[in-house]
Design a protein around this nucleic acid. Sequence first.
DNA 1: AGACGTCACTTGTCCTTACGAGTGATGACT
DNA 2: AGTCATCACTCGTAAGGACAAGTGACGTCT
Lengths: 259, 259
Amino acid sequence: MSEIQRPGALYQQVAAAIREAILSGEFEPDALLPSEAQLMARYGVSRPTVRNAIAALRAEGLIDVRHGKGSYVRTSQQPALTLERRITCTTDGTFVMPNGDAWDEAEQPSTYRTRTTTGTGRLLQLGAEEALFGCDRLLIDPSSGTRAMHRTLIPFTTAEGIPLLTEEPSTRPAEIYGLLTQDGQKLTWSETVRARMPLPDERTTLRLPDATPVLHLARVTHGTDGRSLILEELRTGADRAELAYRITADKQPTRRTRA
Amino acid sequence: MSEIQRPGALYQQVAAAIREAILSGEFEPDALLPSEAQLMARYGVSRPTVRNAIAALRAEGLIDVRHGKGSYVRTSQQPALTLERRITCTTDGTFVMPNGDAWDEAEQPSTYRTRTTTGTGRLLQLGAEEALFGCDRLLIDPSSGTRAMHRTLIPFTTAEGIPLLTEEPSTRPAEIYGLLTQDGQKLTWSETVRARMPLPDERTTLRLPDATPVLHLARVTHGTDGRSLILEELRTGADRAELAYRITADKQPTRRTRA
DNA sequence: AGACGTCACTTGTCCTTACGAGTGATGACT
DNA sequence: AGTCATCACTCGTAAGGACAAGTGACGTCT
């Protein structure tokens, strides 16, 4: 019957008490919290109030609830998968960006034709309703089991120069880059990182727990003339994955920096 | 009285119906949804069921609810702030990473002494409980009003070489980098990007709406010998901000790439 | 005209009750 | 011994009622 007071609603007081107990280490990671009935007795409140408090903690990603079992303190896990972006500038001016990610494909890629939306059009520097080739993949990292949704979008204008693309649209991205550089094009990248809550279909296909955002990575590749050639999107759960940009220079860097 | 069926729980059916109405454009962005009473009548369910459905849509970030007013379709806004990371490798080997972000400081920086946690220790390649100088700032982007929490962590071993740091720990990061490179050190960076749900104090200080993740950016700067010199962390709401890495090369890039 | 109280509407909080459904242990039956 | 029904515990869903609190409009009083 530990009494609680102060900040606003009852369920928030209960949530704050439990949260504090978790963060202070009173409940270890993976520990089983008291059941709803026990919390009702402990704080002298009704079941909806307890459930409301628990819902708040779920939304914060602090706990996981299993039907028939109870509430568990979520292990604030280190990410199981680091998407490495190594960017090196060597003395001879060579520019390397290897990417060690080795995904497996969980399904057959599905290819289709579509048109730009406001979002993809902005990234590709195209107007609305421009024709695109699309290819969706479901990727799995074999070592950690992390899933990711991958999408390749190629404007018709890019594909026209590369007959192979229209014939075999499911060509793997790595091979596409080989095709694009065949004619001596120099490529540059622009990677945009965003995070948001998943839509229901993303929750299921990515097998995301509660309160887990998705990392949304969009990579646009430009040719020598600055034209946008291809857009790749990768969506994956932010609970298991992180992005790491490793920036190395052999020469003394010149920079103004802040934050 | 549009009847609904199928997928599992009643409140999920209601939520699915409303979600579909929103995504199909039946309700425009910023539109006012029917009130709880109207939804009760429309679907023939009780108020807890309606509220449960609405809670699900809030958790998805699809709607915003204002006390005394109603539920509004959230405008899927383009980010108001893009944190630019320009990485250029020129022919003469110069390596530039300017950063155009111009934050204002909302408060006086607060400096303190602390110790490494498992997270910060891992990033700084230090053990647990190593002594650190810390400095926290609350930043505001003047054009968009976007807020960010900034933290600088400097190991004692780094600070020892730079007397100015211990005397005036609130030195701005840009100046710190100037001090670090005084002795001809060549710096490299490693930036790690993660996303997660905010803690309550982050929700309030960053003024985050419902179901808004935080982008968590950690930048570790290394000296010539590979030692970790300084750790900067930036936390900001993922609803208004995005990260953009623009990678340019003057020479033909060599790379193996995939996703 | 202006200030202010009231009212109708909204969502927020809290309670009670009831039953459905997943989980694991216990114990009885074969 | 092994199989399986039962039970007690967990959380999930759904309904009902009641009152608090924020919002804005309407109407009355000064």
